[in-house]
Design a binder for these strands. Structure first.
Length: 186
DNA sequence: TCATCGATCCTC
DNA sequence: AGGATCGATGAG
């Protein structure tokens, strides 16, 4: 593995589906009490902004969605079912309110608990609401570029748990690495 | 202040 | 297939 270093903000300041693709195979790094936890991103979902009825930003600008409407390269973390957290990375230029949800990791280093599914991913990585709004160029919390030479096959499927969103529910905006054993579901 | 809800997970 | 679970959210 090449040395781990944060991708520049320009990486996130692009079309959300492109960013989602490039996040597959990239490495999420979080330093917890001096211990670097590292996972390879193997499953993501793209959320395309205010028009996307499955996206939190479709509710408009509220205290909760403030981070989504901000500049790219920041973490949007929210609580779900009162128990779990979900981690997103904000994409595209400020005001577009797009993001990519990280759904599953392949353990690389210092990961003991399961990382399949957005809630378990956060728990294993030590990510909670305190990371909401954090800059992903932080030395202790960042994403490192994937190996572009590594062959891979990306699968696109409808997103999980958004049946309420009408036409948006069917769009193939969930992406994962074909055959990877750490994806959250078939 | 408080009813409502959920981009989940686990067990049956 | 169904239920647990509970803090945050945002409307009022």
């Amino acid at each position: 593995m090449a040395s781990l270093s944060p991708v520049p903000r320009a990486f996130y300041d692009r079309d959300t589906v492109e960013v989602a693709h490039d996040l597959l195979g990239a490495f999420l790094v979080h330093d917890v009490a001096g211990e670097a936890r590292v996972g390879k991103i193997v499953e993501v979902e793209a959320y395309l902004g205010e028009m996307d009825l499955a996206a939190h930003s479709s509710k408009g600008l509220t205290p909760r969605t403030r981070i989504l409407f901000g500049p790219p390269g920041f973490a949007y973390v929210y609580l779900i079912y009162g128990i779990y957290c979900c981690l997103n990375v904000v994409t595209e230029r400020e005001g577009n309110a797009c993001a990519v949800l990280l759904r599953a990791l392949e353990p690389v280093r210092n990961l003991r608990d399961r990382t399949q599914g957005p809630g378990l991913l956060c728990r294993a990585m030590g990510v909670d609401l305190r990371q909401n709004g954090r800059d992903l160029e932080s030395p202790d919390f960042f994403i490192s570029r994937r190996d572009e030479n590594e062959p891979r096959q990306v699968v696109a499927r409808p997103r999980v748990g958004v049946d309420y969103s009408g036409i948006w529910a069917a769009k193939p905006l969930r992406f994962y690495l074909d055959g990877n054993p750490y994806i959250s579901r078939k």
